[in-house]
Amino acid sequence: MTKIHPTAIVDPKAQIDASVEIGAYSVIGPNVVIGARTVIGPHVVIDGHTTIGCDNRFFQFSSIGGAPQDKKYAGEPTRLEIGDRNLVREFCTFNVGTVQDVGVTRLGNDNWIMAYVHLAHDCQVGNHTIFANNAQLAGHVEVGDWVILGGFSNVHQFCKIGPHAMLGMSTSLTQDVPPFVILNGNPAAAHGVNTEGLKRRGFSREHIGTIRNAYKLIYKSGLTLEEAKQALAAEEGKVADGADSLKLMREFLETTTRGIVR
């Protein structure tokens, strides 16, 4: 049977797998779905149209699936979707989406979310990310796979952060971040490629070299952004290892709407 503490309040309409654990004084709303082996700690509130996958763990005092902090929100049945194997530490707040965007806030799989992190409405977060303490996302932010956000970093609404990028502690981000790039500061400034992270994830020396050369084209060559995109496209057919990463960087530059930190 589901291990529900007697002081927890679970709406009978909620869909809770039999292997789920729910701690003392937690509150689960009627439109919540929780998958197998997920552990909900004490004093956690999960509300809204929220779907949570398998093998997640939520520590105490988090608020999950609450209404968005958006004056236009009028109670529409928007959603929050959380994948599998995520760890969510104390005092995190994840809000549902809004009808002005896709209507759903998403957190993927295998993410490590530390204390006091805020995921605002309509954010789309990928897999294998790390959000250090007090990392904050405004609404409509997109975060790619393997991104790391340092403690107290904050991201302006509608920004995009490409896969494998990294924000240092207390970074204030108001523009998009291309894949693989390290940023720091307020205002944010680029400081090279996330080389150490790529090594840990099994990227070859040659592949990393290709990415570093691409970074130089964007940031060190004096090319305009349009010229840098053309240079990246020309390089894609020349490299033996890393053409897919060059394509990823070029396509990111082609789709940015806020411009990149440069």
Rank of each mutant, 00 (worst) to 15 (best):
I52C: 11
I34N: 06
H156F: 10
A132D: 03
D122P: 08
F91L: 10
H156G: 00
I148Y: 05
V102C: 12
F158Q: 06
K220H: 13
E76H: 12
V102I: 12
C123W: 06
Y219S: 08
Q60S: 15
A67H: 03
G23P: 12
T257H: 07
H43A: 05
T93I: 02
L80S: 07
T98L: 12
V20N: 06
S204G: 11
D84I: 06
G139T: 01
Q175N: 12
A233Y: 02
D55R: 01
T195K: 00
V143D: 10
H5M: 04
I46G: 04
A135K: 05
H43T: 00
K160G: 01
E76A: 08
A135G: 15
D17T: 04
E227G: 05
A14L: 15
D55K: 03
G151D: 01
D101G: 14
G150Y: 03
G197V: 08
Y25D: 13
F203N: 00
T129W: 00
P12N: 11
V193E: 00
G162F: 07
F131H: 14
F180N: 09
N86G: 07
P179A: 07
K3G: 02
F61D: 13
P178D: 10
T38E: 06
E236I: 12
G144L: 09
T224E: 11
R205D: 08
F252K: 09
C123K: 06
L119Y: 15
L248Q: 15
Q136S: 15
G53K: 10
R262M: 00
I52F: 09
V104K: 15
E81D: 06
T105E: 01
F180W: 11
E81L: 11
P178H: 06
E235L: 14
Q230L: 09
D122M: 09
L137Y: 09
H121D: 06
F91Q: 10
K216T: 13
F59I: 05
E226Y: 04
R205G: 03
G65S: 02
S62E: 09
P68W: 12
V20G: 12
A188H: 04
V10A: 01
E226P: 02
I22L: 12
G202C: 07
H164T: 01
T171A: 14
E142P: 00
P68L: 03
R250D: 09
V125Y: 05
V177N: 02
D176A: 12
D110I: 02
V147H: 04
L119Q: 03
S221M: 07
K229G: 08
R37M: 01
N31A: 00
S204T: 15
Q124H: 13
S153G: 09
F59E: 06
